[in-house]
Design a protein around this nucleic acid. Structure first.
Lengths: 412, 412
DNA sequence: GGCCTTGCGGTAAGCGCTTACCAGTGAGCC
DNA sequence: GGCTCACTGGTAAGCGCTTACCGCAAGGCC
């Protein structure tokens, strides 16, 4: 209003607003934060000045004073960027999807609570990861840590100062944890493969050996296999790393070593399955006709693969959202609402295990809809004779639908 | 040391360190920030105390005092979460990958510069998106805005107060922009399709109509088509939305309307292509045998699709990293180093356009490696006769390799 | 009508840092 | 030996908020 003199450059401060409204900064603060119920007129003047100046309080000052930043830190692990010769950022590519969906889950929940996300990544063997994580901790009110970003001793130390929630880890005295029910999910999948499909040989492409999820999945699968007399191939040659490249390497290596592959390859997660299917396709091996493949997680692309990936759905985004809520409950440094939250999983039967693929509702269409046919004149693109090249999309369609004697597998 | 008395609970402050080291807080600060070259002994005492207490300065206090938060805000757009009956978070799923890879690019670059990322999303038609964005702005030193998160007038206002870099947008007086060279990329792709493959009919599944990238891509494609006398199908029925579901919908609708499809479907981005391929597969139409499909972006999964997706690679992560550097150059509120940075693109010929698929280096393998064969006893899983079901992985292998007369298309 | 309550606004004290400014100390110089 | 200067450490003033505390005014009560 009258003598509005915003400081030169930079966003207006609470002093600018107070001056413009002709009140004290305390009143401005009270109106804005809804404290002490200011008189209507005061409120109006402040609000008008705020609108005029486009005032938004500075986060740092607010945080310092209120001892609350309204920011939660999220730390995940990434593979290092290899700088190739041509200066580009090449094959990072992996471990996307799962982590990112979780993060989005956190973000949405955080947003609802008026929080923002402070995102940071840590590289595999970064020596001072803990320093950077600590810095993030001091920029936020609490931390959500993805799997294996910090060694246990550091974690313990960190969590003495800051609320910490881990994802897919183990709860400790001072940290809470959110995970999904890997064991039950894997049991359900195993029963489906063994009882519904009747597969007799399988293998498990493992994730990181020390990941609790990996362990739970491996054990559940092994238990079912053992109790049904099914052969489960194991050993270091089946060790993956949760990444597509890991899955692909396992298969390629095995094939070039001349190892006989099992009828089903059960993967520790979808990324791995993606790599496995990729490698199998490159060697001309049909999925699921010759080898069935399954994943775990149900990341968004799983249903877009060909064949669509049979997998265990984790409520990924919900995991993230839950982690946020849990963290929030700890933020006053109160005790966490709960120490170990386990979310349910669900078997998603799709085509890669040998179940019949889903058909479009419109059903079989007349081929005449294809304008393509009128292209026959084009010289370079007529069908060549169907030579069976490895790496091509070779289909052996017609897996018989699985008997439905055990509709959703079984509950453990 | 001697009388270390950290305040009860909560991380130690600079006062705790000063007391423990027997120096003033100024000295602590100077040692930690490398100012004024303190005496060796002072340095030692401070460093020892810091190590002992595990002191890390509070971000808010630091930011307030130094007028630098060392945080950059990143705002992207997401589709709203639909809360389904069973309380889960269902099909968000889309627009992942591209955005997330960019964000990781930003994050890595930011990390190098000692910054962290403040992440926030905005929902399609959120009425007060600008308020939330403003809040983020006040928690950071500058903002990177993804495509279409803020209407132009709001953007202009925002950027008067805060450094802003847009991604794949348009540079303005007060904002800088980073994008990739969509036009050249699309031209290269179009020439490949037209000259190398000889396709005569095509269609463009568009992205958001007002996206500069979409416009550039459409125009480049149209120009090439026109100059070669190739039919380019256009119109509202080909309007997608950069999402897989959009691409799938376009195809499904067209098919159920009985529209004849062109020989090639060029998609505005990979997500769209993914949806298009999905829908085509569901209708039993072979890609690329009957219809070729191409994308744009080269998101990580593109090479894992079957067939592998021919697309234009954008240096996605680098886009993000560049955006960060640009933003950083603006942070003192200086002028941006540049106003509109354009990064090069590159045609990735893979199988979905009709080029021969890449073969595994190991080549053809003996089928005997398949333990699977020993499973023949299993009752429920023998090959059924190859009935041609829609939705199955139907392969019409053996597209003849494209003539190599124009190795990488052409440069524009 | 005086006194106590109640309501509301202003003043000022931090929050935990950085840094300008000042004071003390020792070295170098004439 | 006294002076200047360079160097180092301490003191204190903010940075932009929130909020405890105080003072004033008006209303209610006996």
């Amino acid at each position: 209003m009258a003598d509005t003199q915003p400081n030169i450059q930079g966003p207006p401060t609470i002093y600018d607003v107070a001056r413009a409204a002709g009140v004290s900064i305390a009143s401005v603060s009270r109106v804005l934060n809804g404290h002490r119920n200011p008189r209507q007129e005061t409120r109006d003047r402040v609000l008008r000045a705020v609108a005029e100046l486009g005032y938004v309080p500075d986060g740092a000052a607010r945080a310092l004073s209120a001892r609350l930043k309204e920011v939660v830190g999220v730390v995940f692990r990434r593979v290092p960027w290899v700088e190739t010769g041509d200066g580009a950022f090449p094959e990072e590519e992996e471990s996307l999807q799962f982590t990112d969906v979780i993060n989005r889950g956190i973000e949405v929940a955080a947003q609802r609570g008026g929080y923002n996300l402070l995102l940071g990544s840590v590289v595999i063997d970064e020596h001072d990861a803990h320093r950077r994580i600590m810095t993030m901790a001091r920029k936020s009110d609490g931390l959500v840590l993805h799997d294996r970003v910090l060694e246990p001793s550091r974690l313990a130390e960190l969590s003495r100062h800051v609320p910490v929630v881990t994802m897919a880890g183990v709860a400790t005295q001072t940290t809470a944890n959110v995970r999904s029910d890997s064991g039950t999910g894997m049991t359900e999948l195993a029963r489906h493969l063994i009882h519904d499909h009747g597969y007799l040989t399988m293998a498990y492409v493992a994730g990181h050996a020390d990941s609790p999820d990996n362990i739970a999945r491996r054990l559940a699968l092994a238990a079912e296999a053992a109790s049904s007399g099914v052969l489960l191939m194991e050993g270091p040659q089946w060790q993956g790393n949760y990444l597509a490249s890991g899955g692909a390497n396992v298969v390629s290596r095995l094939l070039s070593d001349g190892v006989r592959l099992p009828r089903v390859i059960v993967c520790a997660n979808d990324q791995t399955a993606l790599g496995v299917m990729h490698a199998l396709a490159q060697h001309g091996i049909d999925v699921p006709g010759e080898i069935a493949v399954t994943g775990f997680d149900d990341i968004p692309v799983a249903r877009h693969l060909r064949p669509q990936l049979t997998t265990i759905r984790q409520p990924i985004a919900e995991l993230g959202a839950t982690a946020f809520e849990l963290l929030r409950s700890m933020i006053g440094n109160h005790e966490p609402a709960e120490h170990d939250i386990v979310l349910p999983t669900r078997l998603m039967r799709r085509a890669s295990c040998g179940c019949p693929p889903v058909t479009a509702p419109t059903g079989q269409l007349s081929r005449s809809v294809l304008l393509a046919k009128s292209d026959s004149a084009a010289p370079a693109e007529r069908d060549a004779p169907a030579d069976r090249r490895p790496g091509a999309d070779i289909a052996v369609p017609g897996q018989r639908p699985a008997p439905a004697d055990s509709p959703e597998g079984a509950k453990s």
